[in-house]
């Protein structure tokens, strides 16, 4: 192509040619849309929230202006909030009990499906296990209201069997929140457990048996340690959302089941205004930092596990 022709080309064609010719430009064009979008609407909001929680914005009529100051006011007000420590403690208690419950409930099933079941039926069984969890979270939680209601299924069943005379009051209690959390989050524990158990080498168990270990001992000394990456992954997957859960305590809990999540919710939705958003984002950021520490520990722990196996 002659130089003249090259110069006559319209501007946008020239730009396209330049992009075609340069690998770097191509990569930039491919990465830019999503990166810019996420930088603006995902990552920068975290920075804004961080700044807001340190009181670096001031409201002037209807707009907010940046003020170069750092104040811990919102964090102090969060820690001064009546019952804050009980609330934090309760969130941890719910999350830890939920982790233990989901582990105890799903381990035997994951073990059976991953280990003992005819491979033909494995994928069907896993599917049967996860289908209920594809139903909207709100509806799954709401459906438990019918099961745990004073006149609900569990109470009706127990009364018919003559085990109790008066219905047990579930709704509004810690017990209801924990039962529903265990139900809603069980699949997050089941899937990684199944993933690990399904891949576990059966010959190792046979070796243990040949060497004279009882099935009980084989389980404790071989199966359980080898499935620990699944246990850790599942525990983390359940713990992270459980510790900040607000939907379940609000739907099946009561006045005595406020958690970190319901607190953040009420600051943002009910209290609103400068103080509500400030204290709420302080609480949200504490939650996030806590989760990052946990995830870091997880990578450390499981990284070590992988080398071990």
């Amino acid at each position: 192509m002659s130089r003249l022709e090259e110069e006559r080309k319209p501007f946008h064609i020239k730009i396209l040619d330049r992009i075609r010719a340069s690998k770097l430009l191509k990569i930039i064009v491919l990465l830019a849309p999503a990166s810019i979008f996420l930088a603006i609407f995902f990552f920068s909001p975290f920075i804004i929230a961080l700044m807001y929680s340190f009181n670096m914005f001031k409201q002037v009529v209807y707009t907010y202006v940046f003020v170069p100051r750092i104040s811990l006011e919102y964090y102090i007000r969060l820690l001064d909030f009546p019952g804050i420590f009980v609330t934090m403690q309760r969130s941890f208690y719910y999350a830890i009990v939920t982790v233990i419950l989901t582990l105890l409930l799903s381990y035997p099933a994951a073990y059976y499906i991953g280990f003992k079941l005819d491979p033909k039926y494995k994928s069907t069984a896993v599917l049967l296990f996860i289908i209920p969890f594809w139903v909207n979270f709100l509806l799954r939680t709401y459906s438990m209201k019918f099961v745990l209601h004073d006149e609900g299924l569990v109470n009706t069943l127990l009364m018919t069997l003559g085990l109790i005379k008066e219905p047990i009051r579930f709704l509004g209690t810690d017990l209801a929140v924990i039962i529903v959390m265990a139900y809603d989050y069980m699949f997050l524990m089941f899937l990684p457990l199944y993933g690990v158990l399904e891949k576990l080498d059966k010959e190792l168990l046979e070796a243990a048996a040949t060497l004279g270990a009882s099935p009980y001992k084989t389980f404790l000394k071989v199966t359980l340690p080898l499935s620990s990456p699944g246990i850790i992954a599942g525990s983390l997957l359940v713990f992270i959302p459980a510790v900040g859960e607000f939907i379940i305590p609000m739907l099946v809990g009561g006045v005595n089941t406020t958690t970190l999540g319901t607190l953040i919710y009420s600051f943002f939705i009910t209290v609103r205004g400068e103080a509500g958003w400030g204290i709420g984002s302080a609480a949200g950021l504490i939650y996030i930092i806590f989760i990052m520490v946990l995830s870091y520990l997880y990578i450390k722990l499981v990284g070590a596990e992988v080398q071990f196996g």
Partner: peptide
């Protein structure tokens, strides 16, 4: 990975501030 409630509140704050 990030819990949705934190994502949601930071985004709301972002819209308010901007």
């Amino acid at each position: 990975i990030i819990p949705e409630i934190v994502e949601a509140l930071t985004l709301l704050l972002f819209f308010i501030i901007i």
